[in-house]
Nucleic acid binder design. Structure first.
Lengths: 209, 209, 209, 209
DNA sequence: CATGAATGAGTCTTCATTCAT
DNA sequence: GATGAATGAAGACTCATTCAT
């Protein structure tokens, strides 16, 4: 199922994996190259053999992990806009992200670090492209907001999931009533909500069903 | 309209202002105490006279700026849940945040830094409390997701606004079609969407205490 | 029993007390003026009303606390050297220090800080004067060493006492057999040893009994 | 006579040397890492490549320099206690320290800094182990005091030596009569005194295991 | 008598990065 | 493909000290 990329430099791939994991869980700035290197059992200098810079690792992450989004975008750009296209894009986005949970988290929670980063912009552009594809042509701010929210909904699912698995931490007066859920259930719920939000996008070209 | 707080040490207040502005625009980690101090025309050590720690500044920010949320929570806790309460909470939250745009941005974009911060938790608890008040009693994951998304919608409005005001940055192929909007228009749209999302929260017990 | 010094500025005296206590237990460098001030319930600035500088507090300590040594020295200088004088000096030194245990500890354990301090030198001179009085005229290095050791013996008693009262910390193989002792017993033992060490000082002026 | 330790990273060794020298002469707290680094012609960061922390340098010092004491302890633990063992331990201790004069000085004059230091405790344990070996089984407080003093005597020799070589500093009234001595002479005198002090240790059980 | 506010110099420490081997 | 050694810049924080009030 994985792209048959010649397995040259197993290390490079491992770096990307570990880096994403750490970036997502602790944040970009709080993750030092030493930590990544230690986790891999290599030296910091080794990282520099594979990547020119810390930011370049992010670059690598984007290139390796954003493939599903790229495909969705490419696919979407080849089609004329329609409600069905819109919904299918949302679904593909959700499906792509479900396998790469940390990626989205990393990009949502590390904006300041990514703002000055070339790799950060690359990813942001992908997100904006998705938003535009979903919002359709001649969209109003209203529509754009819906498109954005629809995509963010996917992200929120992960956010909530994380919340539930951590300590209760309740302040007392209001109980945390929601029952535990699986990743699949969460994603289904999120997609459902996302589609509902997107459903009322009404591009200038004519009112939608 | 401003609270008649004795003007003792206006420096403390200025620190909080400048810090929030910088934290929001550049991120917590990328903002050094030197930068804050320079901007205020004081020494780093002066900051330490007013705050025990960098994190303590965040604490100060939360305490000073989160008042509207606190009031909304306090108000909400005094009422029995009902669809009207739910909607009013969303509106109050939006109104409170509209005046304090950077606050929300800061907290959404600096999760990693805030995760280890006492002040960060304080704010998170407020958000969770809001979510629970909005979701109502005996909420399912579905309901919780909606409550969360409704609140996040407010945040997204700021996100989009920022996007529009910055450089075009488009890759070319897809045009940014959405017309410029004012903060007020954006907020209205966001609240509308938020209410729509929240509308389908249907607590198990029916509208009860 | 205390010198009738007019009780002007109770604070000044309290500062000296607290400072010595902290200097002795944590060391001069590790004790900040803030800590002293906090302990007294005043501000750092208040300390500066009473003392010109941190070092000046040490000065104050020496002047206030070294009185017994000064008296012993003054007394000793008025007499011709004799074995009896020697022994009496040792006894008076021990008696003086028994009431001011932290003083000796402070000066023995903070040499580096005191070396550059005017107050430090003042105290050191007193110690050297004592040594010279004990060693007698025309002393050899041998005699001087004995005189020094005799005086240090007093200090060691405190050192051991401290040791006994803390955790067992034994490494295992050799047991800490020594039974607990009181301050008085410890001092008696120390003085006895000190006198024994001093007993064989034989100044040029003729062999001693 | 020097251990054939592979000369990898002679920097590490140089750091230890310079650090001990500075710690002993100026004190631990008054010696900044910058100073150590400057003296070596490297950057502060270089120190951190070799040692995790300032305290860790002390650790390094102990491990490198305390070898003679360790050997004496190991040797002593293998023997049944006897007056001869006692005396030999004192002699070995003196011999070991004679080559490492700054070490003992550092540890005696920097107690406050070392009290909170892991490395400090390591050294203290060695000293306590020595004391216990010297004092023998079933020692009274009296015996323990003698054992301690015997070992301290060695230290005092260095103390006096230093005194003689520095400025006259006398207040005038009492002359410093003792003639200059060499290190060897001083040590001989100190050992002699130490043995005399130790001689009257009389363990309860008689000379037994 | 004492405080509140501030400073300036300095501390330890961490990090991304480089380069000879 | 990787390491060991080192750098330079910067960061958060602490401290003794000052001074107007």
């Amino acid at each position: 199922m994985s792209t048959t990329q010649s397995p040259r430099s197993d290390t490079r791939a491992r770096i990307i994996d570990v880096a994403l994991e750490l970036f997502a869980s602790q944040g970009y700035e709080k993750t030092s190259l030493r930590e990544i290197a230690d986790r891999l059992g290599v030296t910091k200098a080794a990282l520099y053999y594979h990547f020119k810079t810390k930011d370049d690792i992010v670059h690598g992450i984007v290139r390796t992990m954003a493939a599903p989004i790229d495909e969705a975008i490419a696919w979407g750009r080849g089609q004329a806009w329609s409600p069905e296209l819109r919904d299918e894009l949302v679904r593909r986005f959700a499906a792509g992200m479900a396998e790469r949970a940390p990626l989205l988290r990393f990009f949502h929670e590390n904006q300041p670090a990514l703002r000055e980063s070339a790799a950060g912009h690359e990813f942001k552009e992908r997100m904006l492209a998705m938003i535009e594809l979903v919002q359709g042509p001649d969209a109003t701010f209203h529509d754009r907001l819906r498109a954005t929210m629809a995509l963010f909904a996917i992200n929120s699912a992960f956010f909530l999931l994380k919340q539930e698995h951590s300590e209760p931490c309740g302040t007392g007066s209001v109980a945390y009533a929601s029952p535990p859920v699986t990743l699949v259930e969460a994603m289904d719920a999120a997609v459902e909500l996302a589609l509902e939000i997107a459903a009322r996008i009404e591009p200038a070209g004519g009112p939608t069903a």
